[in-house]
Each structure stands twice: as structure tokens, then as C-alpha cells.
Design a protein around this nucleic acid. Structure first.
Lengths: 206, 206
DNA sequence: TAGATTGTTAATCGATTAACAATC
DNA sequence: TAGATTGTTAATCGATTAACAATC
């Protein structure tokens, strides 16, 4: 199926498929049927087959899915094998927490540089990642062409920074600020991480 | 409408409605129509009216919605006015980042205590929050009856800890670990925060 | 071959959008 | 009153589930 026709409902399930299949792979399991995977994941076998078939026939009748093969296919679908480069804008608390703890590599992404405006941070290394001044951003983008920018700066600067990053050729924004970015006419996907919305939804469900 | 019949699709939009309406409120706007709100948010007016009407008729024909009133209604629907208490299990990097930076109060939640097993942390205060040993957890729950537990401990301990928290009366789990909690037969909502899935989805969309 | 399980089509279910009467 | 905009029903659209022929 044409990638552009796959619904976001399906796409949002892919990383979870990947996590489960990777777990099976690590456990040394070599094949799995849609029905056994469905039971583990709390989905229907039908949905799993429908979802995977958006991207190709990875299974085999009478056998199921080869775990090693499916792992690799899912990684490829998700683009985890693309060796992408990321930069992070804002080395405050949230930024540092990500730099120190988040496993970018597991997503196939290399965090190559951090940017900030705070003079005391410039030149420092955080978990091996150099902090540069935001003034160097445009030049850095031209030279190294990172695909992904992580937005962990104050929300007041987010909209302008998003536009600037796009103008210099960023391919996707991972937005930890609370603002909705408006990038009309610019074809750059934005993925938001919203702690506060998440906690409010939990609060509703209590 | 009966709260249990409101679909999660609707519920997941509520915090965003709240954010926008709060912004209008802060800007001193006193009324808003579904169509103007729809335009700002990139939704249809129809959807906004349908969504809000799951909870009551907050608008007025020919006028629209009173911003102050709707703000208060949404806060109440989300339970932000319930003065709930939260504890956090795991004062490692993720835990400390939340304690130091996340605004629990904006969600109407008071973070009352942190728990860990690391001796060097016990007794310390992080941003005013005392770290106790996990051995004190059961007693603490009995005495203070926190409604929400934030899970920021190693994933290997998450399942057991989830069960233990529920047995002692927790009402909801905010799960930052990468595991899916299985709490069959226990009616405690779990809200997952999944950085890695979020970045993988962005990676897919590039 | 017989059994298992996929890939895929058709049926069902749920969510979104459109339309409009009610009413402020 | 006339204009605006809701609340709500009906129509459409999309996603999930069920069913089964294909096939390993």
C-alpha cells in the first residue's frame, strides 16, 4: 500500500508492534502467529494482519511470521535503519534529562549537538554531547544537515525556532513544548510529547 | 451523557480544549463560538459541539460559549479541581526531572512524596519533595491515601510495583516505564508516556 | 495430504461531519 | 424582530472485526 494512504491509527500502533516483536526476538523465539501476538498485546489477530499488510505480506500461510524477518521489516518501515542525526534545542532541565537518559540509539537516531543561549552552558559536554550557542545553529545545519530537531526550549521561542529550523532544512520536529506549532505550507511533521495532557487524561479517568 | 459512554477519542481531546480555552481566558476574551475555536484548533465546529455536548450544554444559542464558565466546566470534567495527591516511585533521572520541572499543580495535583531504594537519596529533599525508602510505601499509602502514582523506576520492577500500589488503594498509574502493565481484574486506569514510540512515529513520518 | 494460518474481501461498528430546527 | 449559534439528528466516512478462500 502507498505509504501516504496508511492511516495514522495504524502508524501509531507500529512502535508497539516493534517493541513486542523485538522482545520475542530477544527471547529467542523464531516465529509467531497473528493470534498469539494478538493475545499478548490485547488486540485482535485480524487487526494485526490488516495493519502489517499495509506494508507488505510479511507472513506465510500455515506458518505465521518469522520473528527475525518481521523485526527487520518493522525497523525499516519505521526508518530506524536510516542512521538519522538529531539536534536538541534547549539544554535546560528537560533537554538535559533527555540528553542524559533517553536512548536515541534505540530509535536509530544519533544526537549530535545541543544548542542553548545560556553562556555558562556553551562549550560544555553533557553525556558527551557538546552544547553550542544558538547563533551557530544555521551554520551547523548547513554543514551537518541533521534531520530531526528536539524542541526543549521555553515555549515563547518555539514557534520562531520551528520556522527557523525548517527554513534551514530540518525534516521533522519532536516538540516537548506546550505550544502547537503552526507551519502552514511547510511539509515537516511535528510529533508532540505532552505530559500535561497525559496526566489530565489520567485525572479524568480516575 | 453517562461518563462511561464517552469515547476515548473525545476524552483525549479534552486537555487540548482546556489549554485553548485557558489561553482565551488569560487573554481576557469572554466568549467564543465553536466555529472560531475550531479554526484556531484546526478542528470542525461540529466536532467541538459534539464533544462538549457529551458533558452538557455549556453554550447558548446565538451567543456561543462563555469562556470563564467553559474553563471551569472543563477543569471540573477533567477532575483538576479535586485536589488529588500523587507520589512518585523512582527518584532517578526521569523521576528527578519530573519532580524538578513538571508543573503538577497546573493539573490540580500535589506531589507529596518520592520513593526510592537508593540509600544515598533517602531523606533528601528534591524541589521540596522528601525521598523516602520504598519500605515505607505501604504505610504511607495507608496514612495519606494518594490517588496517583508516577512510575519512574526501572522497568524490571514496574509490574510488581503496579500491583503493590493497587493493592494498597492507588486510583491511577502514570507510567513512564516502557512496559505494558497487566492489572487484570483491577479497575485502575494506567496512562502511559512513551517517548520512544513518539520518536519512532516521527521517524516513520519523515 | 491435512492442518494451520495468512492475505484479503465483506460486514459491522464507531467516529466525524453535515444539516437544520430550536432558541437566545 | 432578525441574526447568530447552539444542541441534536441524520448522513457520511473510516476503522475494526469477521469470514473465508488461498496456500504454505
Amino acid at each position: 500500500m502507498d505509504k501516504s494512504k496508511v492511516s495514522m491509527a495504524v502508524v501509531r500502533r507500529l512502535p508497539r508492534y516493534y517493541r513486542y516483536i523485538l522482545e520475542l526476538s530477544d527471547a529467542g523465539v523464531d516465529r509467531v502467529s497473528s493470534s498469539s501476538l494478538a493475545e499478548k498485546m490485547g488486540l485482535t489477530a485480524s487487526q494485526i494482519r490488516q495493519d502489517l499488510n499495509c506494508f507488505g505480506g510479511f507472513g506465510q500461510q500455515g506458518y505465521g511470521y518469522n520473528v527475525a524477518n518481521l523485526t527487520q521489516e518493522l525497523a525499516s518501515i519505521l526508518g530506524l535503519d536510516q542512521g538519522r542525526k538529531a539536534i536538541i534545542i534547549g539544554a535546560g532541565n528537560m533537554g538535559r534529562a533527555l540528553i542524559n537518559n533517553f536512548n536515541f540509539r534505540k530509535c536509530g537516531v544519533a544526537l549530535t549537538c545541543a544548542f542553548d543561549t545560556e553562556t555558562s552552558l556553551i562549550g560544555a559536554h553533557i553525556n558527551g554531547v557538546l552544547v553550542r550557542h544558538v547563533d551557530e545553529l544555521d551554520g551547523f545545519q548547513k554543514q551537518y544537515k541533521p534531520e530531526i530537531a528536539v524542541l526543549t526550549m521555553p515555549k515563547s521561542a518555539a514557534q520562531r525556532m520551528g520556522e527557523r529550523l525548517c527554513k534551514n532544512g530540518i525534516k521533522g520536529l519532536w516538540n516537548f513544548t506546550t505550544v502547537d506549532l503552526h507551519l502552514e505550507g511547510i511539509d515537516v511533521p511535528v510529533e508532540n510529547v505532552r505530559f500535561m495532557e497525559s496526566l489530565m487524561i489520567l485525572s479524568y479517568r480516575l
